[in-house]
């Protein structure tokens, strides 16, 4: 379970949020520039809050700057908006970059149906394929938490739906907290167990839902 309560001064407003995620899909929903990605960056360790606490499975990751677990030690999977695949490495090397167990990666590759892409370079595969590769790469480290920053925004409508369904299926198998950023409310409703509406760095509404079940 993730628990987070942080404050961070941004250029035009102060981020001040408190949220939790059990082994469920939590959506951060809000307009662009409302601080959603900054929240993900604070959880992953790429950004540092000014104050507050972040705990994951009862282990503090951050506590008022005194305790601050480095990014590499947090074991959090992060799927970036533009996937950030390593352009100079094959799909295989991308996925194995941070992988822990070979057997586990085999499974992932099978489930995500990307076996035929392994020897290709990121520039040679389609947007939907990139998305699945990036997801495999993020999961290959066996993370305790998965962060997704608008993971479907670059995809066509029908591929987008396929990928959404796939993520829901994957989540049922892996059962870790997933925090996903989106500004598409339909998507939020489809995927979420819990939705936090965010506006100018504040949580304006928390919706607990079971749309997806």
């Amino acid at each position: 379970m993730l628990f987070l309560e942080i404050r961070k001064k941004l250029s035009s407003f102060e981020l001040d949020v408190q949220l939790k995620a059990e082994n469920e899909i939590v959506i951060l929903f809000g307009p662009s520039g409302s601080g959603k990605t900054t929240i993900l960056n604070c959880i992953s360790g790429l950004a540092t809050p000014d104050s507050g606490t972040i705990t994951l499975n009862n282990i503090p990751l951050f506590k008022n700057k005194k305790e601050n677990v480095p990014i590499q030690k947090r074991n959090i999977g992060y799927l970036f908006q533009d996937y950030a695949l390593f352009p100079h490495m094959t799909v295989k090397k991308n996925i194995y970059y941070g992988a822990r167990e070979q057997e586990f990666v085999h499974q992932l590759v099978e489930v995500l149906e990307i076996g035929h892409l392994m020897e290709k370079y990121p520039r040679q595969i389609s947007g939907g394929e990139k998305q699945r590769v990036a997801l495999a790469r993020a999961l290959a480290t066996k993370p305790q938490l998965l962060l997704l920053d608008e993971p479907f925004s670059a995809l066509d409508q029908h591929i987008r739906q396929e990928c959404q369904d796939e993520l829901l299926r994957l989540h049922q198998t892996w059962n870790i907290p997933v925090i996903m950023v989106t500004h598409d409310y339909q998507e939020a409703q489809k995927m979420a167990d819990r939705i936090y509406k965010i506006n100018k760095g504040q949580i304006s509404e928390e919706i607990k839902s079971n749309f997806s079940q």
Binding site: G45, L46, Q72, R74, I76, G77, F80, D82, F86
Partner: peptide, 24 residues
Amino acid sequence: NFDLNIENAALTMGASKWKVFWTI
């Protein structure tokens, strides 16, 4: 000249800064 998130992705996968420099 390249997206900073490419390095960030490597960091989140547990790579040290030294490894990120040499491999990415």
